[in-house]
Amino acid sequence: MSSEEVVVYVLTALGVVVVALTRLRLRGDGGGGRLQVGRRLLDLHTGAGVAALVVWTMFLVAPTDSVLGGDTAGIIGLALWWLLAVAGILILVRWLPSRGRHASAGAEDSWSSGPGLSLLAHLGTVVGVCVFTWAYLNSTV
């Protein structure tokens, strides 16, 4: 197994953490930030994340001559990863400063005192998806 493959497997495992922690952090009251995250966006993030993890993992472990390990599975997995990344970036919008006379102050949550954890997770996901795309295009995985 090459070092590129190891990086892809580790980033895939970290994807599980991002999807699960985002769901846990935003359930109920919506977590910290200045804006409320819509339920549909959170559901899109979770659904795309779970589907991406399942399809991408099948693509990684299935033989390349099978349907589950073929190019179609890889492309579908990448598309789901990109959908997850876009939904994650949209979730980060809740931390943007609001302006105006009636703007409310930012809400804090018990996970952190600011957007650091969300930034790390979702910008890291974008970087991870770029690595997945690079690895797929270069036939590393």
Rank of each mutant, 00 (worst) to 15 (best):
residue 50 V to W: 11
residue 53 L to W: 03
residue 28 G to E: 01
residue 35 L to A: 09
residue 31 G to M: 04
residue 16 V to K: 08
residue 42 L to E: 02
residue 11 L to A: 11
residue 28 G to S: 01
residue 10 V to Q: 03
residue 22 T to I: 14
residue 54 V to I: 01
residue 29 D to H: 12
residue 24 L to V: 12
residue 42 L to P: 04
residue 8 V to M: 03
residue 45 H to L: 03
residue 16 V to Y: 14
residue 21 L to S: 15
residue 16 V to R: 07
residue 40 R to V: 10
residue 55 V to S: 03
residue 27 R to G: 10
residue 8 V to A: 15
residue 37 V to F: 07
residue 39 R to N: 12
residue 19 V to W: 04
residue 42 L to D: 02
residue 34 R to N: 14
residue 12 T to D: 10
residue 33 G to L: 01
residue 15 G to Y: 05
residue 31 G to H: 00
residue 35 L to N: 06
residue 41 L to G: 06
residue 15 G to N: 03
residue 26 L to I: 01
residue 49 G to S: 14
residue 24 L to A: 12
residue 46 T to D: 13
residue 14 L to T: 08
residue 15 G to T: 03
residue 42 L to Y: 04
residue 52 A to L: 02
residue 47 G to D: 02
residue 29 D to N: 15
residue 45 H to S: 09
residue 34 R to T: 08
residue 15 G to F: 00
residue 18 V to L: 08
residue 20 A to V: 12
residue 29 D to E: 12
residue 36 Q to T: 01
residue 25 R to A: 13
residue 47 G to Q: 06
residue 34 R to H: 07
residue 51 A to F: 03
residue 23 R to F: 11
residue 31 G to F: 04
residue 23 R to W: 13
residue 31 G to K: 09
residue 18 V to S: 09
residue 31 G to Y: 05
residue 48 A to L: 11
residue 14 L to P: 01
residue 26 L to D: 01
residue 50 V to P: 04
residue 10 V to L: 14
residue 29 D to F: 15
residue 45 H to T: 10
residue 18 V to K: 10
residue 37 V to L: 00
residue 28 G to N: 03
residue 30 G to P: 05
residue 20 A to P: 14
residue 21 L to W: 11
residue 54 V to K: 01
residue 38 G to W: 07
residue 31 G to P: 04
residue 17 V to P: 14
residue 29 D to T: 15
residue 30 G to E: 05
residue 52 A to Y: 00
residue 41 L to P: 00
residue 39 R to K: 13
residue 22 T to K: 11
residue 40 R to W: 11
residue 27 R to K: 15
residue 49 G to I: 11
residue 9 Y to I: 06
residue 45 H to P: 06
residue 29 D to L: 15
residue 21 L to Q: 15
residue 50 V to R: 08
residue 42 L to F: 02
residue 9 Y to S: 13
residue 14 L to H: 08
residue 48 A to G: 02
residue 32 G to T: 07
residue 46 T to M: 07
residue 34 R to F: 12
residue 20 A to Y: 15
residue 24 L to H: 04
residue 13 A to Q: 06
residue 36 Q to W: 04
residue 12 T to K: 09
residue 43 D to T: 04
